[in-house]
Design a protein around this nucleic acid. Structure first.
Lengths: 139, 139
DNA sequence: TTCTTGACTTAGACATTGTCCAATGTAGGA
DNA sequence: TCCTACATTGGACAATGTCTAAGTCAAGAA
């Protein structure tokens, strides 16, 4: 975590209280907050932080490759700090919970050359959907 | 296409001019319009059709499994009438163009049991991203 | 054919999520 | 300590989607 702040400073980031708080909120495993959730959590520690700053900071973290933007439904994007370990997502169709998962093999290789239509394919995201144990037991 | 209208009528759909026009707009291969695009195209044929009706009709077509909802970016959802042939999507990261593609093997089987965390996994979407030939040549 | 009725459509208000801008504040180097 | 370029703020605005009350109409009944 302090690693992250150090890396960012190394890249010329000016280290402000707001940015520090946003980075702290995103620290942890299986974190997939929306921008509004990040803003709410950040406000707990720094009440005067503005929405615009949260959006700006999240955008920068994404540009720098420190955080991944995930949009599983058509709703608000979510931000995933687990950017340095290749992974995919498993989403509960009912409650929306997200888990990071790891697949066998490289999904990129499943797309044959003739199915690439001349694209320079560089990235693939796989999203699994189903019912989580909790929703399954309470329905 | 008239197949579609017949199927829908069979399911108790009341056949209105508005629904017919929306269904016609969605007819074809490699169609991935946003709701607003559908509305614009439908308005060409039926100027007084309202946005709400387009949203309603698209929602119904999705519920009935006749159309698939695709959200490749965090922007507007797109509607894909190619619902009866299993396929995935290839998206140009620059211009947003979408192509239907077919992968080798079943992506569902790439997720091992211990990586399912008790979920009843039922669905998987794979989205490939890259630069399309057109954007590649003009950049 | 005409009538009837419940489903459908409409316009516009409203909600959610995200972006932009001008004014103000401040981190960090000189 | 002072400067200044960069960061933050609040609020207006934009894009997309949802909801509601009132009016309209498709299709079965008579």
């Amino acid at each position: 975590m302090s690693d992250l702040l150090e890396r960012l400073r190394g890249r010329g980031w000016r280290l402000t209280a707001q940015r520090r708080v946003v980075a702290e909120v995103l620290d942890g495993d299986h974190v997939h907050y929306t921008a509004d959730e990040v803003h709410a959590l950040a406000s707990d520690r720094l009440p005067e932080i503005s929405r615009a700053t949260v959006y700006n900071t999240l955008g920068e973290l994404v540009s720098l490759g420190e955080v991944i933007e995930v949009s599983t439904d058509g709703r608000a994007k979510r931000y995933d700090p687990n950017a340095h370990h290749d992974h995919q997502h498993l989403v509960c169709s009912q409650c929306g919970t997200i888990r990071d998962v790891h697949v066998q093999g490289d999904p990129l290789s499943a797309l044959p050359e003739p199915e690439r239509y001349g694209f320079q394919v560089s990235e693939v995201t796989v999203t699994y959907r189903g019912i989580c144990p909790h929703c399954n037991s309470t329905s």
